[in-house]
């Protein structure tokens, strides 16, 4: 199964200074392990929500809203698309990630409909 992992961060960390070289190295190591185990299909980091836009739909009306989205407590800062054999496997991998803050949301992607 495929799962989408969304790294959610508060507004503070979103604007925080770039990670230390040590933290980056640890993250690299973890990511390499994931790639070697053929877990990662895709990964990406997002620019802060100050550079983002929202489009709100209301009937025929569309409203474009500029970031930052201060009213939201948690914003998606990055994502992974993983190929795993169960949600539990995704959780076990995720627990090994070298982060000391933030919330990660794990959601299964719908595949093979009608199979």
């Amino acid at each position: 199964m495929r799962v989408l992992i969304m790294a959610k961060e508060g507004e503070q960390t979103e604007a925080a200074s770039p990670p230390t070289p040590e933290a980056m190295e640890e993250y690299q190591k973890f990511n390499e392990e994931l790639v070697k185990a053929a877990v990662v299909l895709e990964a990406g980091r997002l620019y802060p929500s100050s550079q983002g836009k929202r489009v709100r739909f209301d009937g025929k009306k569309r409203t474009v809203i500029d970031g930052p989205f201060a009213e939201t407590k948690e914003l998606v800062a990055g994502y992974w698309l993983w190929q795993v054999r169960s949600i539990d496997e995704a959780l076990e991998w995720l627990k090994r990630a070298p982060y000391d803050g933030g919330t990660f949301e794990v959601r299964e992607v719908v595949e093979y409909e009608g199979m």
């Binding site: 054999r85 169960s86 539990d88 496997e89 959780l91 076990e92 991998w93």
Partner: peptide, 10 residues
């Protein structure tokens, strides 16, 4: 048990 199963797979 579910965690163990997942860890075993990994």
């Amino acid at each position: 048990h579910r965690a163990i199963e997942a860890i075993w797979r990994i």
